[in-house]
Amino acid sequence: AIERGSKVKILRKESYWYGDVGTVASIDKSGIIYPVIVRFNKVNYNGFSGSAGGLNTNNFAEHELEVV
Rank of each mutant, 00 (worst) to 15 (best):
A25M: 14
T57P: 04
S15W: 03
S49C: 15
I37F: 07
E66P: 01
T23Y: 09
A25W: 08
G50F: 03
E3Y: 07
K13Y: 10
R4I: 15
S49G: 13
P35N: 12
Y34F: 10
G22H: 03
Y34G: 06
I27W: 05
V36P: 00
G47D: 15
N58E: 15
V24H: 01
I2E: 01
V67G: 01
P35F: 14
V38P: 02
F48Y: 08
T57Q: 09
A61S: 06
V36M: 03
G5F: 03
A61V: 02
V68N: 02
K9Q: 04
S6V: 11
I33D: 11
E66L: 10
S26L: 08
E66V: 09
I27F: 08
N44S: 11
Y45M: 15
A1N: 09
T57G: 07
E62Y: 14
G19C: 15
K42L: 05
N44W: 15
I2Q: 00
K9I: 10
L55I: 14
N41P: 11
G54D: 08
W17I: 00
L55G: 08
K13Q: 12
I37K: 14
S30D: 07
N56S: 10
V38R: 00
S6I: 09
V36E: 00
F40D: 03
R4S: 10
E14C: 15
I10T: 01
V38M: 00
I27L: 06
A61Q: 05
P35G: 12
K9V: 08
V68M: 10
I32A: 11
S49D: 15
W17T: 00
N41A: 11
N56P: 05
I27K: 02
G54W: 07
S26M: 12
L65V: 06
H63E: 10
S6R: 05
W17M: 02
G19Q: 08
E64A: 01
G31N: 14
G31Y: 09
T57Y: 14
L55F: 12
E64T: 01
I37C: 15
G47E: 15
D20P: 01
V67H: 04
F40S: 03
E64D: 03
S49V: 14
Y45H: 15
K42H: 08
G5Y: 03
G54A: 08
Y45W: 09
N58P: 03
V24W: 03
V36S: 00
G19F: 10
G50A: 06
Y45G: 15
G31Q: 13
R4P: 14
F40T: 03
S6E: 04
A61I: 02
G47N: 09
A1T: 12
I10F: 02
L55R: 07
Y34T: 06
S51K: 05
D20E: 12
V67K: 06
H63S: 12
Y16Q: 04
S30K: 08
Y34C: 13
I2F: 06
A1H: 11
I37P: 00
D28N: 07
G31E: 13
H63D: 11
R39M: 13
V21A: 01
S51L: 09
G5N: 05
N41L: 11
G50K: 05
D28K: 05
V43Y: 14
S26H: 13
G19Y: 06
Y18R: 00
I27G: 00
G47F: 04
A25T: 13
Y16P: 07
V24T: 00
W17V: 00
N59V: 07
G31D: 14
S6Q: 12
R39V: 14
V68C: 13
V36H: 00
R39L: 11
R12Y: 03
V68H: 03
L11F: 01
R4D: 08
Y18P: 00
N58F: 09
